[in-house]
């Protein structure tokens, strides 16, 4: 009764719950293999950077705007068009409205 069918496919939550449970059990089991000598608050937890000093949080912090640098740079031509489109000008918003209105009128009016 929980199966969702869409003509060509299906979706069963019970199955998904089972899969999730198994994943969780596996995760728990693997976790058990960890070292028992690992302790919090000792030297062990500190990062080892080839003997260099650990940088401060500000230096380690990667800004969100740099995160997908590669993607945005490769799509630069698309972004320049889109940025030009989003002018933030109230009149342009209405111009887009009128434009779509006119185009749709043309389509439906000619048809």
């Amino acid at each position: 009764m929980f199966t969702l069918e869409s003509g060509s496919g299906f979706w069963n939550p019970i199955l998904w719950i089972l899969v999730l449970l198994i994943t969780f059990l596996l995760f728990y089991g693997i976790r058990g293999f960890g070292k028992s000598t690992y302790k919090k608050g000792t030297e062990q937890t500190k990062a080892f950077l080839s003997g260099n000093k650990e940088p401060s949080p500000e230096e380690m912090h990667i800004k969100a705007s740099n995160l997908y640098w590669g993607f945005t740079t490769s799509m630069k031509s698309l972004y320049s068009v889109l940025r030009k489109m989003h002018t933030g000008n109230t009149s342009d918003y209405i111009l887009w409205f009128v434009l779509v209105l006119a185009v749709l009128l043309l389509i439906l009016g000619v048809m």
């Binding site: 342009d92 111009l95 009128v98 434009l99 209105l101 006119a102 009128l105 043309l106 009016g109």
Partner: peptide
């Protein structure tokens, strides 16, 4: 470019409205 687009769109709109 904006001006030309505007004039075009407005004339189109005017034509359809007047015809309607």
């Amino acid at each position: 470019k904006r001006m030309i687009a505007g004039i075009l769109v407005f004339s189109l709109l005017a034509v359809f409205f007047f015809f309607g």
